[in-house]
Design a protein around this nucleic acid. Structure first.
Lengths: 253, 253
DNA sequence: ATACACCTTTACGCAACGTCAAGGTAAAGA
DNA sequence: TCTTTACCTTGACGTTGCGTAAAGGTGTAT
């Protein structure tokens, strides 16, 4: 039995365009071209298309599929295992995203509470903690999402306690900072401890911490007078000093 | 403080290209353009970029983000809830994919066993059952992935029993088919029952069942002599009759 | 003969940028 | 002051897997 594009397309449940595309990228060539330049597919091509669609259902990219079905040396089992790992990574990422979104929603619902604490105003768009990042991944893999979600809910209920922790962290950081400021050396132990505490503090607000972003915000403390004023309140030069310490801490300089 | 593209990019941890792109699509315009046509950003833009990146971390599309930050009537909370639903749907899809891949891997590991049953040869690329589709989704939502995965493992161990079930289904289908064949009416009760059984049977091999694909494969039974011979073995015309019955069952005709 | 369903190739669109390319500008060092 | 170096600009193609016209040829039924 021979098929034109439309017929084969209908048979396999794909579009004609798809078959032309598969021809174009060389993953499924027609058995022959007839005198009117029509693509004609045969039984062999039907079988191959079934294979292609099977792997497609599993989410593999067409290029991978091409390798699987054309190269005899290519190992389909290994390709599937690779693919599986990719899928698991994607799911883990998605899980994290969902958690972040959940927390943002929860935070926006409780926004009034948070607005009372005026110091959070500058970061009000970043009211998502990444607390779970520290242990969330492993726990999620070991005990499943349920466990993590329950724990997340508890964390959400703990937001008042967290606030205390944030306050404590900030105070401790400032203390270390003024200690370091006396030495004048941003590489000093106290200054570096302050930078580390600053990182912890930031982690309460940021969805995703990176060294670059940390260095960036420290720079902003100097560039943006609102922040400079806040940090220089007790001792002028504190913002600059913090920036220098963070630059060393993050390896930016 | 004013920033050129590179400076702002570094501050925020994105690329210069990204900032130009954001300008291009109108989601973040520079405060002004200087005499050398350089983009100059101010404090307001820094704040807005922080907002954009925050939502970006949550996986929202730039167009959605644009609406959130430009239109005051647009509800960010609702947007987040919508987004959350999308993410959950994506995860469910991913979970299914992973299961399918797992089963395929398991099936390929046990391929030798399956190859003994020669009748499966024509479908050897589709050795993935979608059994779990029936109950997997709800269970997964109620009890988490762990439960489903355990159940899946049991299913895999049960493959011998499943094989019996598949055999039984095929026999039952053939019986109904020959009953229907005597009436000559593909819309008869027996013929339609056969089509339904055929669907069940297919569901053992297909990653994803669709009416179109079902109709397509029934057509192939007629077009492809290998299948025609198989179905017409006891009674000529059986393949055609099955196709007709399935076409009615799937609404293809 | 005409309508209608099918076929062909060409090419833009999508999402969010990465990556040259070609050419102009600014700041720093010799 | 000259030159290097680092930055800036716009333009345009590539990425993935097709959907969707557009413009024109073919096959078949009436």
């Amino acid at each position: 039995m021979e098929y034109t594009v439309k017929k084969l397309a209908k048979l396999a449940g794909v579009s004609s365009r798809t078959l032309r595309y598969y021809d174009e990228i060389g993953i499924l060539k027609p058995a022959r071209i007839n005198s009117s330049r029509y693509r004609i597919y045969g039984r062999k091509e039907v079988d191959q298309l079934q294979q292609i669609l099977f792997y497609r259902e599993l989410g593999l990219e067409l290029e991978k599929i091409k390798k699987i079905i054309t190269s005899s040396s290519f190992d389909p089992a290994q390709a599937l295992l690779d693919h599986r790992r990719k899928l698991l990574a994607k799911r883990a990422q998605l899980d994290q995203l969902i958690d972040s979104v959940d927390k943002t929603i929860a935070a926006s619902e409780g926004r009034i509470t948070m607005q009372d604490k005026e110091k959070f105003d500058a970061f009000k768009q970043r009211l998502v903690d990444e607390n779970e990042k520290k242990y969330g991944k492993e726990v999620r893999e070991k005990y499943g999402n349920n466990t993590v979600e329950k724990s997340n809910q508890q964390v959400l209920k703990m937001s008042e306690a967290e606030y205390e922790e944030v306050q404590r962290l900030e105070k401790e950081m400032k203390d270390e900072l003024s200690k370091g400021l006396k030495t004048g050396n941003p590489a000093s132990e106290a200054a570096q401890k302050a930078a580390a505490l600053h990182r912890q503090w930031l982690s309460f607000f940021w969805v995703k911490y990176t060294l670059e972003a940390h260095a960036g915000i420290a720079q902003m403390y100097v560039d943006d007078e609102r922040f400079t004023a806040y940090y220089d309140d007790e001792e002028p030069g504190t913002a600059k000093f913090l920036r220098d310490a963070v630059q060393i801490y993050t390896g930016a300089k």
